[in-house]
């Protein structure tokens, strides 16, 4: 076991971890932050996406020990300070950007990472950026609409498919 210290959603945490303990296991099982989902555990689906030092990563494909000293942000830290949904989360609700909701935490974290670098992405840029996030309800259309709306753009411009 190795002791790791990291900041998760603004709070400093220190815990012993196993060498082979994944970041997603650390978040879900040690910290009980179960909003970060494990869909595939093979780095394909993106349900486990979190931010490490501001960058989008798949928490199932990184060891907890590698996050020692890092700033980690998960879906639990995305809401506004007063507990209301942030602009991306609200847009997902408004535009029905989720059906079963399993992929949603990863989608919201990916959307947040995209909008940080590219505040007004085109539809094509959003689709390209979400290549690593799979929605098995296949609800992509409304996810794209939600992200367009969250970036202050006219979501109605996207052609129906």
């Amino acid at each position: 076991m190795t002791e790791v210290t990291m900041t998760v959603n603004g709070k400093s945490v220190s815990r012993p971890v196993r060498g082979n303990e994944l970041l997603v296991e650390f978040l879900r099982e040690q910290l009980r932050l179960t909003g970060t989902h494990v869909g595939c555990d093979t780095s394909q689906c993106g349900a486990c996406c979190v931010h490490v030092n501001g960058e989008l990563v798949k928490a199932c494909t990184m060891f907890a020990a590698e996050a020692d000293g890092a700033e980690v942000a998960t879906i639990e830290g995305m809401a506004n300070a007063d507990g209301s949904l942030n602009v991306i989360q609200q847009a997902f609700q408004d535009h029905h950007g989720l059906q079963c909701g399993f992929c949603t935490p990863g989608m919201v974290m990916a959307a947040a990472a995209l909008l940080k670098d590219n505040p007004t992405p085109t539809e094509a840029e959003i689709r390209h950026y979400l290549q690593g996030n799979i929605c098995r309800c296949t609800g992509y259309h409304n996810i794209i609409k939600a992200i367009m709306a969250a970036s202050g753009q006219d979501a109605g411009k996207i052609a129906a498919e």
Binding site: S43, G46, C49, V52, E55, L56, V57, K58, T61, M62, A110, A113, L114, Y129, Q131, G132, N133
Partner: peptide, 9 residues
């Protein structure tokens, strides 16, 4: 290569 999350690692 891969997707954005993969490219960040």
């Amino acid at each position: 290569i891969g997707d954005p999350a993969v490219r960040n690692r």
